[in-house]
């Protein structure tokens, strides 16, 4: 595996990425020009390699994506995902959008990303939280289960915050997020329930049941929701996030678009793992910043992985 880096305008990012990559034992190839990156891609076509490049290099990313469809691209964000997406929505091999905040990568996010690329082991909430995180899990098969899961989740967060206003507030945000993810997993993902009236109580068969899981390691809170359908595409998520859709009339929408915007307001990392036809797992990570303003202003990352069957 090799990492090719084309960040000519951000040498600090390039240096940090190089350091992290080399420390993970992965080959690192910085490129100064677009041509250099293309030449490298052409020469190592048969190897697995990942191109890291800035979101503002739109034409280069589009061209590279078409010319080297076997490559995987990681886009570095210095502005919001919603602003970047309209320009890059058709670049099929962009796998991750990695946010920078205050001019820095999140080293933890990058190390995890490199580990995943190398091991090809993508799903699972546990890998994102450090020891000694305690995980809670619940299966959801009915409306009652959903209600119960959200109640336990809310109590969990309020309890870890010792009843402080801050954690009370974050408990509501996380429950909003979990509620939307459960709605998506129960209704949108399930072909049997996609078009049913959502105000009627639902009952899922055993093989349709949804799993919600969460944990906190003192720094990062993580939540995952998994369904057994594996139908969520990257393009669907990106279309819902497209800022241009803000002008669409709300009354004409299905809940999905509205929901995904609500989801993105309440997390920092949105990770989608899909095993087509078998499983979709959404992993959401967030930091409970001291000030809500700091929580809100962080740029969001979005990763999309197709899970390979051996895992």
């Amino acid at each position: 595996m090799k990492v090719v880096c084309f960040l000519p305008d951000s040498i600090a990012f390039q240096n940090k990425l190089g350091m992290l990559t080399r420390s993970a034992g992965v080959d690192f190839q910085p490129c100064k020009t677009e041509e250099e990156a293309k030449v490298f891609a052409a020469n190592v076509k048969k190897d697995r390699f990942f191109l890291f490049a800035e979101a503002k290099k739109i034409e280069f990313l589009k061209e590279f994506s078409v010319a080297y469809p076997e490559s995987r691209i990681v886009v570095i964000l210095q502005e919001s995902l919603q602003r970047v997406i309209p320009n890059l929505i058709d670049c099929a091999n962009i796998q991750c959008f990695v946010a920078t905040n205050d001019g820095e990568f999140d080293a933890r996010e990058l190390i995890m990303l490199l580990k995943k690329f190398e091991s090809k082991d993508y799903p699972g909430l546990e890998k994102h939280l450090n020891f000694p995180a305690v995980f809670k899990e619940k299966r959801v098969k009915s409306q009652i289960d959903k209600r119960e899961a959200l109640k336990i989740l809310e109590e969990f967060i309020i309890k870890i915050g010792g009843g402080s206003d801050r954690f009370d507030h974050y408990a509501q945000r996380v429950c909003d997020l979990a509620d939307e993810l459960l709605l998506n997993a129960v209704f949108d993902a399930n072909p049997r329930l996609k078009t049913v009236d959502r105000s009627a109580p639902f009952e899922l068969e055993d093989h349709e049941s949804v799993r919600i899981k969460w944990g906190f390691d003192g720094e990062v809170f993580g939540l995952s929701v998994a369904d057994p359908f594996g139908s969520l595409s990257k393009k669907t998520v990106m279309q819902y996030l497209d800022e241009n859709q803000k002008t669409e009339h709300i009354g004409k929408r299905n809940s999905g678009g509205l929901g995904i915007k609500l989801i993105f307001e309440r997390l920092h990392h949105y990770i989608v793992n899909v095993n087509p036809g078998k499983m979709t797992e959404i992993v959401c990570l967030m930091r409970f910043e001291k000030r809500f303003k700091d929580f809100d202003k962080r740029l969001r990352s979005f990763h999309y992985f197709k899970v390979e069957d051996s895992h």
Binding site: Q172, D176, D179, R198, I250, R253, S255, L258, L262
Partner: peptide, 14 residues
């Protein structure tokens, strides 16, 4: 009202 989800918000709008 402590929370709302997209189903509730759409229903309210309509």
């Amino acid at each position: 009202v402590k929370r709302a989800n997209s189903c509730g918000i759409l229903a309210w709008y309509k």
